[in-house]
Nucleic acid binder design. Structure first.
Lengths: 345, 345
DNA sequence: TAACCGTGAGCAAACGATTTCCCATTTTGG
DNA sequence: CCAAAATGGGAAATCGTTTGCTCACGGTTA
């Protein structure tokens, strides 16, 4: 059933039907009513493809996230979708972008679908895409893309702020042997977090032993591996900061397996502040990086790029802060000499 | 840039370009090569809208889930998406379907987008949609839709199987006062789980006190509330089964706050077996309802519906089983009289 | 009364592909 | 060597909308 059918039954032209449906004010209310009646009776709804074809706008946004399986991202998807439906947009989702090739094809496919904009909230794969994408004049928003790419908006995240707070918090609790479990260092965001840690430590005159810097993969299993590695050290750390909450959960889980109590014997700090953090046992002290805020910014960026008909020469820069939130996974370092493998009873 | 541009530059007709791109075998390899050369040089890619308009297929699947924020669903999305990209499909995601109105419009919009099929994996809102949707002849797959709807595939879940195992497991550990925290009972799936619990209890001759049946909302907060309610009882339960893992996590968290140790003083069993369950402290014993399997079935159902040109009179029925997986959140009931509020020292 | 306007509806041309014919070559067989 | 069949490419119709342009109609103004 198409617009012609409606036109025929309402005894008007297809043009009038189109105008009536789109609520163009110049159409006579009488006629409009007649059209709507037929539309309702037949349950007609316009073909979006045809619409998009002529208008050039699909009212679809692409949303690319790293790994929907990490609870950090669903929260983003949630907010983004909320805004999308409010704005009358659909969202085309791509997740699971392990490798850059897969990612490229995914995004390429989005562009083939003529999405009106793409938000790439992936923390790391951005660089590879930028070139591909900004040629097509689709509005784009990235997170923490290093270089300054024309026509692309960028959400810059201030990792330093929250991580410094975390370090100082832990230091204030008298910890001196503080470990950091990073994500894969090829990811810019993981690297930035580790740097922020090192800088913050340096700032307060604590040196970070290289053996206390362990690289993992931002998963719970990674966190478990990390702790196993750390407790094998001659002198164990008494606190461990993690590059994300999943890692921290893994660390706590391994601590449980090893009979190390958190926070009495080991303080743990996460990063991200996923909703789950609050429900861990013990509730996880972590650095908040607001997922709703991030999604909100990304969405707004896209919308404002679209409304601006002449694309801005330099994409807008947005800013997102991070902040420590205290819960119960950190405590005063145990007095006396740090727990030492070989001196342990 | 469109197909005409390519045709002009390759000095062939648009028809030939189309054929070359779609790898129609009858086109002369020479010409095809010439076309592809131009295509690559110009970075041309066909307009999906136009394609869809003429072919009537969009190569997009709609995926509707209850609440992306519940870790159960991302896992489904993940698998579904995996299969989708393999099959050359995009996915249009709708989550956050609290109210049926919102859901209807969402799905309506999907249909307007001319998706090739919709998987509604939402555990409860199905009924409302069925009528709207199955008129349009879009392939559909639901979970546990009660009545037998023509042209609609249905994944039926055997809650009873896993829940009976859970009940028997807990009973074997000498628990007799066993509580059940259900989801919102207006959701068919929540109701079915509760029924399965009651039946399983009856089967082994344990009576379930109505005060041990608490209705909650499938969230972690709900779990916390539930436990608070249960420990206020004159005689506390020594084991609590939950309608989903999020609830169980909440229960364990509240137990932690109340200083009740799991599993020594309280056994907890979840339902769903989200990935996180294994990483809880203690690791959560739960009933597995494979998310990957569910997604896989849904996807296959859609694909097979599509390939079958004449829609089957009665949609296919699929089956998904549930199974207890033992971890460490359950233990022998403490001997002696059950912990009693007023007799507690 | 004639010229003029403003209003609102219809005609037809896009939008960018696919696909159905149909025609011009070759190839094949007698 | 010629007719018939096979082959491959092109012209044009089509998918379902939107929209610029034209035109008819009725009312206002000189």
């Amino acid at each position: 059933m198409d617009i012609r059918e409606i036109a025929k039954r309402a005894k008007v032209s297809t043009a009038t039907v189109s105008r009536a449906i789109n609520r163009v004010p110049t159409v006579d209310p009488q006629l409009a009513k007649r059209v709507w009646k037929v539309v309702d009776e037949l349950g007609y709804y316009p073909n979006t493809q045809a619409r998009a074809l002529v208008s050039g706008k699909s009212r679809i946004f692409g949303l690319v996230v790293s790994e929907i399986t990490n609870p950090f991202f669903p929260e983003i998807v949630h907010t983004f979708e909320e805004l999308a439906v409010q704005g009358g947009y659909e969202i085309l989702l791509v997740s699971t972008v392990h490798d850059s090739k897969r990612m490229r094809t995914s995004v390429r496919r989005m562009i083939e679908q003529r999405v009106d904009g793409v938000a790439v909230l992936t923390f790391g794969m951005e660089e590879l895409l930028v070139d591909d994408l900004h040629l097509r004049k689709v509005p784009l928003v990235f997170v923490d893309v290093g270089r300054d790419v024309p026509h692309v908006s960028n959400i810059r995240i201030d990792y330093q702020h929250g991580i410094r707070q975390a370090v100082q918090h832990v230091a204030a609790l008298r910890h001196t042997r503080i470990a950091f479990v990073s994500g894969p260092l090829r990811l810019p965001s993981a690297l930035a977090r580790k740097r922020a840690f090192e800088d913050s430590m340096a700032e307060i005159g604590l040196n970070v032993d290289s053996e206390l810097l362990v690289e993992q993969d931002h998963t719970m299993e990674g966190g478990m591996r990390a702790l196993r590695q750390l407790i094998a050290l001659p002198i164990c750390p008494t606190a461990v900061l993690c590059s994300n909450d999943m890692t921290a959960i893994g660390v706590m889980r391994e601590a449980y397996d090893q009979g190390i109590s958190v926070p009495q014997e080991l303080s743990v700090v996460g990063f991200d502040n996923i909703r789950l953090a609050e429900f861990m046992i013990p509730p996880l002290t972590t650095v908040d990086m607001s997922q709703t805020e991030l999604a909100r910014i990304a969405f707004k960026a896209l919308v404002s790029d679209i409304s601006r008909e002449t694309p801005a020469e330099h994409g807008t820069e947005y800013q997102l802060n991070t902040n420590l939130v205290l819960r119960r996974s950190t405590a005063l370092a145990q007095s006396g000499p740090p727990r030492h493998k070989s001196t342990k009873p």
